[in-house]
Structure formats: C-alpha cells, structure tokens
Lab assay of single mutants.
Amino acid sequence: YHCKTPDCKGWCFFEDDVNEFTCPVCFHVNCLLCKAIHEQMNC
C-alpha cells in the first residue's frame, strides 16, 4: 500500500486485520479501509 500523502514515497505491506498504518517516511496515519488520510477520525 502506498502512502496517500502527496509526494511521499512511503509504503507498506499489510494484513487483513490491520485498518491503518503510520507511514515510516512522513508519519501520517493512512486509513486502509477507505484509502485516505483522516487522522483523529474513525472511518
């Protein structure tokens, strides 16, 4: 999964039971359910 922050090169592999990941490059939290960044909110 590629981080949705513009111009960020961060990415990860994820498993089905994970709903979000913190990008190791820009540190934004990406929602894997809706494929967006909406920190401090539920999907």
Rank of each mutant, 00 (worst) to 15 (best):
Y1R: 01
Y1V: 07
Y1E: 06
Y1W: 04
Y1K: 06
Y1N: 05
Y1H: 07
Y1D: 13
Y1G: 06
Y1C: 04
H2W: 07
H2E: 03
H2K: 15
H2M: 12
H2Y: 15
H2S: 11
H2L: 07
H2R: 13
H2A: 06
H2D: 06
H2C: 10
C3T: 00
C3L: 00
C3I: 03
C3R: 00
C3G: 01
C3Q: 00
K4N: 10
K4M: 15
K4L: 15
K4P: 04
K4R: 13
K4V: 14
K4Y: 11
K4H: 09
K4W: 11
K4G: 08
T5M: 13
T5W: 12
T5E: 08
T5G: 06
T5C: 11
T5A: 10
T5R: 10
T5Q: 13
T5P: 02
P6E: 08
P6N: 08
P6W: 02
P6V: 07
P6L: 05
P6F: 04
P6S: 07
P6I: 05
P6C: 02
P6D: 05
D7C: 02
D7Y: 11
D7W: 04
D7T: 05
D7E: 13
D7G: 14
D7H: 08
D7A: 10
C8A: 02
C8K: 00
C8L: 01
C8Q: 02
C8F: 03
C8W: 00
C8D: 01
C8P: 02
C8V: 00
C8S: 02
K9P: 14
K9S: 14
K9F: 05
K9R: 13
K9E: 14
K9Q: 12
K9D: 12
K9N: 08
K9V: 13
K9A: 13
K9Y: 04
G10V: 01
G10Y: 05
G10C: 03
G10K: 03
G10R: 02
G10M: 03
G10E: 03
G10A: 03
W11V: 15
W11A: 12
W11G: 09
W11Y: 12
W11R: 13
W11P: 03
W11M: 15
W11D: 09
W11L: 14
W11S: 15
W11E: 15
W11Q: 14
C12L: 05
C12R: 08
C12N: 02
C12Y: 14
C12S: 15
C12V: 14
F13G: 06
F13R: 15
F13S: 14
F13A: 15
F13L: 12
F14E: 11
F14W: 14
F14G: 15
E15G: 08
E15K: 09
E15H: 06
E15I: 08
E15Q: 10
E15W: 05
D16I: 04
D16Q: 14
D16E: 13
D16A: 13
D16S: 10
D16R: 14
D16P: 15
D16W: 05
D16L: 09
D16F: 14
D16V: 11
D17W: 10
D17Y: 13
D17C: 08
D17K: 14
D17L: 07
D17Q: 15
V18C: 12
V18H: 06
V18S: 11
V18A: 11
V18K: 13
V18N: 07
V18Q: 14
V18G: 06
V18M: 10
V18W: 04
V18P: 14
V18D: 08
V18T: 12
V18R: 14
N19W: 09
N19L: 11
N19M: 11
N19P: 06
N19V: 13
N19Y: 09
N19Q: 14
N19E: 14
N19S: 13
N19H: 07
E20V: 05
E20W: 09
E20F: 10
E20C: 06
E20A: 06
E20R: 07
E20N: 06
F21H: 02
F21M: 08
F21T: 13
F21A: 14
F21S: 14
F21V: 14
F21N: 06
F21Q: 08
F21E: 04
F21G: 06
F21L: 04
T22S: 07
T22N: 06
T22P: 05
T22M: 06
T22D: 05
T22R: 10
T22F: 07
T22Q: 10
T22E: 09
T22C: 09
C23H: 01
C23K: 03
C23Q: 03
C23E: 01
C23M: 00
C23D: 03
C23L: 00
C23R: 01
P24C: 02
P24T: 06
P24Q: 10
P24K: 06
P24I: 00
P24G: 05
P24H: 02
V25I: 11
V25R: 07
V25P: 02
V25Y: 08
V25G: 04
V25T: 05
V25D: 09
V25S: 07
V25Q: 09
C26F: 04
C26H: 03
C26T: 00
C26E: 01
C26Y: 01
C26A: 02
C26G: 02
C26N: 02
C26W: 00
F27H: 15
F27G: 15
F27W: 09
F27Q: 14
F27R: 13
F27A: 11
F27P: 03
H28C: 08
H28A: 14
H28G: 10
H28R: 13
H28V: 06
H28K: 15
H28E: 13
H28M: 11
V29F: 03
V29C: 07
V29G: 03
V29D: 05
V29H: 04
V29L: 08
V29I: 04
V29T: 10
N30Q: 01
N30Y: 03
N30W: 01
N30T: 03
N30R: 01
N30I: 01
N30H: 04
N30G: 01
C31Y: 09
C31D: 03
C31K: 02
C31E: 03
C31A: 01
C31V: 02
C31R: 03
C31T: 04
C31F: 02
L32P: 04
L32E: 05
L32N: 10
L32T: 12
L32Q: 09
L32F: 05
L32S: 06
L33V: 11
L33H: 11
L33C: 08
L33R: 15
L33T: 12
L33P: 14
L33G: 10
L33Y: 11
L33F: 06
L33M: 13
L33N: 10
C34G: 04
C34D: 09
C34V: 00
C34Q: 04
C34E: 06
C34R: 02
C34K: 03
C34S: 04
C34M: 00
K35A: 09
K35R: 12
K35T: 06
K35N: 13
K35P: 05
K35V: 05
K35E: 12
K35S: 12
K35Y: 07
K35F: 09
K35W: 05
A36S: 13
A36I: 06
A36M: 07
A36Q: 13
A36R: 12
A36F: 01
A36P: 06
A36H: 15
A36D: 12
A36K: 11
I37V: 13
I37D: 10
I37W: 05
I37N: 07
I37K: 08
I37A: 09
I37M: 08
I37Y: 04
H38G: 03
H38N: 02
H38T: 02
H38R: 02
H38Q: 02
H38C: 01
H38M: 00
H38F: 03
H38Y: 02
H38V: 01
H38K: 02
H38S: 03
E39W: 07
E39P: 13
E39D: 13
E39K: 12
E39L: 10
Q40A: 11
Q40L: 04
Q40S: 13
Q40D: 14
Q40C: 10
Q40P: 13
Q40E: 15
Q40T: 14
Q40K: 14
M41D: 15
M41H: 14
M41A: 15
M41I: 10
M41R: 15
M41V: 12
N42L: 08
N42I: 07
N42Y: 10
N42T: 14
N42D: 13
N42M: 10
N42K: 11
N42G: 15
N42P: 15
N42H: 15
N42A: 15
C43I: 04
C43E: 04
C43W: 03
C43Y: 04
C43N: 04
C43R: 06
C43H: 07
C43L: 04
C43K: 05
C43V: 05
